[in-house]
Design a protein around this nucleic acid. Structure first.
Length: 657
DNA sequence: GAGTTTGAAACT
DNA sequence: CAGTTTCAAACTC
């Protein structure tokens, strides 16, 4: 199996092979040179670290467990393949590798900070186990395999990638859960809930909550994990890994944030979480295997409630934070994921949810004719089984009918591969934003398909964009859009036009600036270090900060459309820019920018991120008129247009791609 | 809680 | 692809 392979490496590295050997090895040297961390680790952690770098992630990644997790996200692993492919692809690729790596890094870095090496070690070890197989015994922590896993991940995954973070988070979750089987599960769960929130399609709000909490949650999470794990870990884990790995828990939180960025990641988080819940539930009910399957998906479902987004997410988060300490109940939402099995626990959850106002957070449907086998059903659409709280009639969206569910899913997916993809796609920027604004800035995001509102003015939850806490985009065909999160192009155009009317002089100035920027951008390309807004390398924050939406405090609209065919989005985006042109005949500048930006953006991943930021795209909603927006625009001047262009560059989001 | 409104999903 | 119907959530009373 995978383990054997890993084990040898790990065991060798960790146990038998002395540091000296590794160090002597050319590989070791090479690795050490590559990573800055090494130097630190070399002393205490060298073994683990090196092993990580050496060992290939493959074992973990390849491990069936991993797969199972992914699959679990949805109703089943198998299913996941079809429907989730897009998502999974995103998740999957990043998932395994990313997860492992971040943890390791964090461990290395933080390990020293954290006192307990032992705990850290165990966590790392556990992670592998989890990754490999959820079901596997926790005892494994002792086994070298775990070490291997951790080791491997780091090497492959670069820190820089935000996506990885998600993985890490998941990993952390998993570890925690497994560990949790024990007492502290509650906390873990609470933490998990946060993750779930991220996952929710509506992430925007959830994301906010997370962001807000993250700082605190991380602490908790780490603390909880450590505390929980340590006892167990200590038992199993000897001094070895201890020093190295302490960090995982800590790491997780941070990375979790990153994970949020990617749509795919969300679900995973849910899945992982599910297991945790599941364990609890299982312990209580000893539910059948189906639960596990369902759990994975359900978890996602819980999160899903896109509509619930803002409110729910917040509520949930709060609850989690509060309850986490007191009660594990938080999981309620997840429980939703699992259908009938949880009944006992569900009640609890229900109560909790209701109290918290969470009801919304979890998906509950009220289907009467669809049998919960159509997208009409929120649960089904969210990839979650219906649960007790649901008031559905003739529900087939239950583990009992798993086959039916899967078949139906397949069918729907065949029709629309993205049918089960999150409706709201978030960009990596979201994280950044969150970081900036603990407030709640929703991550930049957009509705993948756009809305078609005619009477609600995109001011009610009828509007999926509004529901998801994102602004309308070009994709939207809404009429009279007044989406507070961002109006669609029409509005923008209007704004633009008005501006032009107001002052063409300004326009010309802008144009000049843009040209300027273009020049700058060129320079930037040559000199990445430059602070120019266009520069890809510079911190994402620039983008985020400048984005007008952020100023709003509300969700920054995202330009990012994920699952959707990127091509369409791009076109649309371009259309936006063009639309300006179209409606406004002018805007040669934009075109210029667009041309320039893409190149820059494409060059570096970071650039991509920037590109993602939707804000730029959306010129600025009505609110923009205010000073902030104006200032932003001026600052970037061209920046904004440039950013829009960059969007297309953002490849990673599209699952399909 | 019942009824209405709304827009997505499904169907033709 | 467009138009219509079905459906269930969101909303109102």
């Amino acid at each position: 199996m995978d383990k054997p392979q890993k084990n040898p490496t790990t065991s060798q590295i960790g146990t038998s092979t002395p540091k000296s050997k590794f160090e002597d090895s050319p590989v070791f040297n090479y690795i050490s040179n590559l990573s800055p961390i090494e130097s630190v680790k070399s002393i205490s952690t060298a073994q683990t670290f090196s092993s990580l770098s050496f060992t290939s992630p493959p074992p973990v990644f390849t491990s069936p467990h991993v797969n199972s997790h992914r699959e679990s996200r949805f109703f089943r692993c198998h299913n996941s393949i079809d429907r989730t492919k897009p998502l999974e692809d995103l998740n999957g690729s990043v998932y395994k590798e990313d997860v492992v790596v971040p943890v390791i890094e964090d461990l290395n870095k933080e390990a020293p900070l954290e006192d307990e090496d032992e705990t850290s070690v165990e966590t790392s070890s556990e992670l592998p186990q989890i990754l490999k197989s959820d079901s596997q015994t926790p005892d494994r922590s002792d086994s070298p395999c775990t070490d291997d896993v951790t080791l491997e991940a780091p090497s492959d995954i670069p820190r820089g990638e935000g996506g990885s973070s998600s993985e890490d988070v998941k990993m952390g979750m998993l570890n925690v859960r497994e560990v949790n089987d024990t007492p502290d599960c509650g906390r873990l769960i609470s933490n998990a809930t946060e993750l779930l929130v991220f996952r929710s399609p509506n992430d925007s709000e959830a994301f906010r909550c997370l962001v807000d909490k993250i700082s605190s949650s991380e602490r908790r999470f780490c603390a909880g994990v450590k505390s929980t794990k340590r006892p167990d870990i200590n038992k199993d884990v000897p001094a070895n890994g201890s020093s190295n790995e302490t960090e995982p828990s800590v790491v997780l939180p941070n990375e979790s944030v990153f994970s949020l960025n990617r749509g795919g990641m969300r679900r995973r988080c849910l899945d992982f979480e599910m297991p945790g819940k599941r364990k609890k539930e299982i312990a209580d009910d000893q539910q059948s295997m189906c639960d596990n399957k369902a759990a994975g998906e359900s978890s996602s479902g819980c999160v899903v409630p896109g509509s619930t987004t803002p409110i729910h997410s917040q509520d949930i988060v709060q609850e989690t934070s509060d309850q986490a300490e007191n009660e594990p109940v938080e999981e309620v939402p997840r429980a939703l994921v699992f259908p009938e099995l949880n009944t006992g626990s569900l009640k609890k959850k229900k109560r909790v949810s209701e109290q918290a106002g969470e009801g919304e957070s979890c998906k509950r449907c009220n289907c009467k004719k669809s049998k919960c086998l159509k997208l009409y059903c929120e649960c089904f659409a969210a990839g979650v089984y219906c649960i007790e709280p649901c008031s559905c009639i003739d529900c087939f969206n239950k583990p009992v009918h798993e086959e039916t569910v899967l078949a139906t899913r397949k069918q729907i997916e065949s029709r629309n591969p993205l049918a089960f993809a999150p409706k709201v796609i978030r960009s990596a920027d979201s994280i950044m934003e969150a970081g900036d604004d603990a407030s709640k800035t929703p991550a930049s995001a957009r509705h993948k398909r756009g809305c078609n509102c005619k009477k609600s003015n995109c001011l009610k939850k009828y509007c999926e964009c509004y529901q998801g806490g994102v602004g309308c985009s070009i994709n939207c065909r809404c009429e009279g859009c007044k989406n507070v999160f961002g109006r669609k192009e029409g509005s923008l155009l209007v704004i633009m036009e008005s501006k032009q009317e107001e002052d063409q002089e300004t326009y010309e100035k802008r144009r000049t600036k843009i040209q300027h920027k273009i020049e700058v951008s060129r320079e930037v390309e040559q000199n990445p270090s430059s602070d120019q807004p266009s520069t890809p390398l510079p911190p994402y924050r620039h983008l985020v900060v400048h984005q007008p939406f952020l100023s709003k405090n509300r969700l920054p609209p995202t330009q990012f459309f994920i699952g959707m065919g990127s091509s369409s989005f791009r076109k649309q985006d371009s259309d936006l820019t063009q639309s300006h042109n179209g409606k406004k005949p002018v805007d040669p500048v934009t075109e210029d920018k667009t041309e320039i930006m893409p190149e820059i953006l494409l060059n570096s991943p970071i650039a991509n991120i920037k590109a993602i930021s939707p804000n730029s795209k959306r010129v600025s909603p009505p609110q923009l008129g205010s000073s902030e927006s104006g200032s932003n625009l001026r600052r970037r001047g061209n920046g904004r247009k440039l950013i829009l262009r960059s969007i297309p560059a953002f490849p990673s989001l599209n699952p399909n791609q």
